[in-house]
Simulated scan of single mutants.
Amino acid sequence: MIKGIDLSLLFGPGVPVAAPRAVIEALQSVKIEENAGAVQSGFDLIFALDKDSPLNTLFLLAGGSALPILRVALMATINGRATALINGVVTRTDLNPGSGGAPSTLSVKGKDLTATMDEIDFSGIPYPAMPPVARVALILAKYAWLGVIPQVIPSLEGPPLPTEKIPRHQGTDLAYIRSLAEKAGYTFFMKPGPAPATSIAYWGPEIRIGEVQPALTVDSGFSTNTEEMSFSFDKEGVEIPVVYIQNPQTKVPIPVPIPSSIPFQPPLGLVPPIPPKIARLQDTARLNPMEALVRGFAHAAQHSDAVSGRGSIDVLRYGRILRARNLVGVRGAGRAFDGVHYVDSVTHDLSRGSYRQSFTLKRSGLLPARTSVSV
């Protein structure tokens, strides 16, 4: 599809298999949205097909739910590095019949595998003496046949005593897992890979440490690898959360402010803004002290980013595929915004002869807290 990049498409009901060559040749463009946090990732494939092609019927049946599950997986290989772009299911199809001899255009839209977890309401299933981490692992076990690999981090909440409380499932699997993540100050998402047609189901804190992707460089002559990039600094969304811990003897709530420095999210900006707002988390008084502090740290993590950036790159010039939920370096944007940023979202746009990505970045403050970034 693109010189220097090999694109692999797998699809099929239940277990995806490699698409035949005719399908790959009919593929005109691919758009994939890769998001951090609770926002579902999705894809949109555009095919140019003859009106008599059996793929028209297959994908339209899948969009109309006549087929139980039609899965789609995409892999891209650049410079010998294979990257899983999406592993999801078809949720909608749109057909635009061609006119004047032009071929029909078929749009196949879908979401990641979290879409399969939002179909059936399992309310009422009991989980006696099971902490949240065990409940999440048990729920995810139902999706192992789809290639879902659980990556579950234990929270501070222990198992409830069956004589006092038996937790029960509320809503769909996706809604219940997300509610447990919110209470623990965690996040839940599906990450495609490591192998084709597999996904890692991550339930744990949003982590901003690890390997830094090669720097996005602007206005630096021959080293420039970014087509455009802009930044903004807005402190209005920054808040200091205050949790309340209740004294068991006096029943008086004790306010405890939560600092902006979080263990699993070290500051990427050297100079954070002075938070203009104080958020009083009143519902924390009924929790034990550790649970209250976790809620406070989670709120601080979600309201600590004053710097945001956006831009676009040509993947061939950048030399690799930029991934969301990871760190990346920035150069040439000026002293205030250079350094390491967290990649909040990435949109992949592939068409004949072109592979571009648009991205959004965020971090807590101005000036780089880390003095070096990878090239």
Rank of each mutant, 00 (worst) to 15 (best):
L106G: 02
K235P: 08
G147K: 06
D344Y: 01
V89N: 01
A201T: 09
M1C: 08
G185Y: 03
M290K: 11
A285E: 12
Y318F: 15
A184N: 13
A298F: 07
P20N: 09
P289Y: 06
D44L: 10
Y176Q: 05
S104M: 10
I207A: 01
L61N: 13
A19W: 00
V315M: 11
M75P: 01
R352Q: 12
S123R: 08
P368G: 07
P162V: 15
G124N: 06
I2Q: 05
D338E: 15
V39G: 05
H303F: 13
I177Y: 07
R370E: 15
P205V: 11
E25P: 00
K251L: 14
K183H: 09
G237H: 02
L287T: 01
L146V: 06
F359M: 05
F47C: 08
R331P: 03
F122R: 09
R320L: 10
A300E: 08
A175G: 02
Q357T: 00
I5T: 09
L138P: 01
S179A: 15
F122V: 05
K235C: 04
L156N: 12
L49R: 00
G296C: 08
S351R: 13
L60P: 00
S372G: 06
I274E: 05
V23R: 00
P248L: 05
L70G: 00
G88C: 03
S179G: 07
S354N: 12
H348D: 01
P196R: 08
S99I: 10
S53E: 11
A301K: 04
S107L: 11
D121C: 11
Y318N: 03
F297V: 09
L156T: 14
G158L: 14
E119V: 14
V375C: 05
L27C: 01
A26H: 06
G63Y: 01
A197L: 00
K362I: 10
D283V: 00
N247D: 15
A301D: 11
T172D: 10
Q282G: 09
I86L: 07
R331C: 05
V346R: 04
L281I: 13
V89Q: 09
L10V: 00
V152P: 03
V271L: 11
L361A: 05
I24K: 11
S199Y: 00
F337R: 03
Y244A: 05
R323N: 10
S199I: 03
D6R: 15
L156H: 10
P266H: 07
L113Y: 04
Q40P: 08
S260W: 06
L268M: 09
P68A: 12
R21E: 14
L74P: 03
